[in-house]
Simulated assay, not measured.
Amino acid sequence: MAFLEITDATKKFGGFLAINAVTFCVERGARHAIIGPNGAGKTTLFNLISGLILPTTGSITLEGKRLAKKKPHEIVQIGMARSFQKVNVFPRKTAFENVQVALIASRKLQYNPFRGAAELFRDEIMELLEQVKLGADSERRAGELAHGKQKQLELAVALAAEPKILLLDEPTAGMSIAETLSSIALIRDIVQERGITLLFTEHDMNVVFEIASTISVLHHGEIIATGLPQEIRVNDDVQRIYLGRE
């Protein structure tokens, strides 16, 4: 049984077919990339998998558990976390507080008027921030951080849920070349050290081929190819549709 299995997933918005009978599997421990041109449906597919929208038809399972009718926070509780194309952090809270909020939510802690929250999970939070190279920025407000560091913070927030599988939507979008190179190494090291399965979308093909162990190509809401990076690199359909080569 596949770790994450998407079977005939279809999503219609009125008369528009955004995702059409998508079927693919993500094996445990894989670093699986979803690539495709703008408008291919990558973010819509991620929204289906993470429970933000419901599929019109088809099924999505994680370790055999059906996800289609579960709410996003329920999917997080069974082992999935994700980031978004647009940075999704609390800009007025510090980096420390952003991760702390995520830990409090993932541990389902109730409000306790007799216990201050300022030092709650300090060691765990600092360990996460150090792991994403933000230890020195723990007391800075998230909105004051450079874009690349905000992406690193979002990664720490996702890791706070202790996910079995991590979904990253365009993790290097908007980054400089130096930030991209640093982010590639960071993501690859973290998923390897923590034994996390990775599913990600990315436009930068250098990033894709540097990280991915498996690649699926999405075009007009359909998977047109899945394979090893070296197979996808020489696939005629991928070169014609995605890379614009005849």
Rank of each mutant, 00 (worst) to 15 (best):
I6Q: 14
P37W: 01
T214F: 01
A9C: 07
L167W: 08
V157N: 03
K108C: 09
D189A: 07
R194T: 05
A212L: 00
H219E: 14
L45Y: 12
F114S: 04
T172E: 00
N38C: 13
L17G: 05
A156V: 06
V89W: 09
T94H: 14
T10F: 03
I75F: 15
E139Q: 12
A68N: 14
L134M: 10
I104S: 01
A105I: 06
G244F: 10
S183H: 02
K108D: 10
N38G: 07
E139L: 11
K133C: 05
S216M: 06
E124V: 02
R28E: 15
I165F: 13
E144C: 06
A18W: 03
D204M: 00
I232G: 03
N206D: 12
I215R: 01
Q239S: 13
E210D: 12
T23G: 14
A118L: 01
A81L: 05
Q100H: 02
I53N: 07
L103T: 07
L54K: 04
E202Y: 00
L109R: 09
A81C: 05
N206W: 00
L17Y: 10
T61V: 07
V191A: 02
A212C: 01
I53D: 08
Q110A: 14
V87N: 08
R245K: 13
A105M: 11
L186F: 04
R240A: 13
G221M: 08
A102N: 05
I241A: 11
P72C: 13
K71P: 00
E97M: 04
F16R: 06
I241Y: 13
M175I: 05
I6F: 13
V157L: 09
K86P: 01
V157M: 14
R240M: 09
F46L: 14
I177H: 11
V238Q: 14
V89H: 07
R31A: 11
L181I: 00
L218A: 09
T23K: 11
G58W: 08
L45Q: 05
R188P: 00
V208W: 00
Q230M: 03
I177R: 06
R188D: 15
L120R: 12
I196E: 07
S176M: 04
S176R: 06
I187H: 03
S106N: 06
S216N: 04
A136S: 12
D123T: 14
I224D: 11
I241T: 11
N112D: 15
L120F: 01
A102Y: 07
E5F: 06
